[in-house]
Design a protein around this nucleic acid. Structure first.
Lengths: 263, 263
DNA sequence: AGAAGGACCAGTGGTCCGTA
DNA sequence: AGAAGGACCAGTGGTCCGTA
């Protein structure tokens, strides 16, 4: 009674199935659909075979998967917004944009970046539904399995290193959108690059953690959209370091405590 | 201000430190201490070097670590309750015992088995405390890291395959001690071996799951002592299979539903 | 130079199967 | 035969570094 079309999920690379599910937005769950039509239209390259003869995957349950399958290694050019050619494709780099601003030229903006996190969440939900239906272990986080699923669903522009790289930026966006927006405007105005903006997102997060007892895991877990992301190592370390030095400062002022700082 | 004696924890096998923490019971947290004096006295082999030149580990924070360090590969005989000799040591096999019954001869009873789960919980709590103190990722389950910690703390009789093998038996003991006890008495009386008793523990668990909406993960997670254990694959599969056939039966009786069973 | 992401690596969950 | 557990293995979390 249950379709087992996704049986290959845990046997990656073994089956050879023709159907491929396109990236689909689980439409209507947020503003992403509209936003995407505006911003992503010229950028979204659909499925370039990633040249290592990977197998594909049957699509699942509901709607809109289109069934075209290219020959392996077809490596044809695609509309990537003006720079046609057959060299290996990458996503356009991010630039610092204000909220609502669409990046021009061969660039992607930060609304698009955050949108990728929402898409990953939708892919996770799909993976969870499949797992529940089949009585298998159900992931609570965006795992390798989810990234693999996203890729097979045609979302080649989603990958683990990128998503992990900017998690804390998304965290600030979730936890304090005001501050996040202000930071974006400030860094755009100053003409800073994405790396500088990214670095600057740590500090306000540590401040939030300070106000909430330093438990960054609890802060992530308490937020419905953030709880599915692993706390980045560096953010965890910064919180720990800052807590330690804050504790040291307060004890050395009060004279109590067990640390041995010079006085 | 914080001791970093356990810095080697994540660098297993690299450091060469002389201090070793003995198994300790985190005394007073449950009845294990008393129970152990009665039952485990003649069985507890303390530290046989596991012959692969593994390094040891500095002990942590609090109390009672004894500092003796044997030469590597000392391989001396130990008091194992009567069977002295230098051959490789194993734990005595389990036999089916009634609640409160002490196993005689070279056997271990089921109270002892369940006690091992409590010990693992205590080791997990110690690992969690260390992780929190150091601002590192904090495990919520009994992971490889916890088994490694237990071994380094001298609890050589704890190992992953054994603990995973009997998890569902412990689960029944946690979730329905009455039923668990009755099962033990019945299987002892019938002279069944441990394997048969172990097998028999699945069925009442599936029945519990049936009563609670089939969500075995939720059932594990709702119980404070059980939530730290991964749901065993086979138990998960049994619940899923039973739910499916129960659903099929009910729909074929009611005539509604989407399955295509013969009528 | 700044940035995207393939691919690697140490340590994980899971359990088989050589051992006693 | 029944059982304990060393050791293996596929797939994970994490992120470096060769690439563009």
């Amino acid at each position: 009674d249950t379709t087992h079309a996704l049986d290959a999920l845990s046997q990656e690379g073994l089956s050879e199935e023709p159907v491929q599910q396109q990236e689909k937005e689980a439409a209507g769950s947020d503003g992403g659909g509209v936003w995407e039509m505006v911003v992503a239209g010229g950028r979204k390259q659909r499925r370039k075979e990633n040249s290592r003869g990977r197998s594909r995957m049957a699509s699942m349950d509901d709607d809109d998967d289109d069934d075209d399958d290219e020959a392996e290694g077809a490596e044809d050019e695609e509309n990537c917004g003006g720079g046609g050619g057959s060299e290996r494709q990458r996503e356009h780099p991010f630039i610092v944009t204000e909220p609502g601003e669409v990046a021009r030229g061969k660039k992607n903006g930060l609304d698009y970046l955050f949108h990728l996190y929402e898409q990953c969440r939708e892919f996770l939900i799909q993976v969870q539904n499949i797992a529940k239906e089949r009585g298998e272990k159900c992931p609570t986080k965006v795992t390798n399995q989810v990234f693999r699923y996203a890729k097979k669903a045609g979302a080649n522009y989603i990958n683990k290193p990128k998503m992990r790289h900017y998690v804390h930026c998304y965290a600030l966006h979730c936890l304090d959108e005001e501050t996040s927006n202000a930071l974006r405007r400030a860094f755009k105005e100053r003409g800073e690059n994405v790396g500088a903006w990214r670095q600057s997102c740590y500090k306000p997060l540590v401040a939030i953690a300070a106000r909430q007892g330093w438990d960054i895991d609890a802060i992530f877990n308490a937020h419905p959209r953030l709880s599915i992301w692993y706390v980045p190592t560096k953010l965890r370390q910064l919180c720990h370091a800052e807590r330690s030095s804050a504790a040291a400062a307060s004890t050395s002022v009060s004279g109590s405590g067990v640390d041995h700082l010079p006085f």
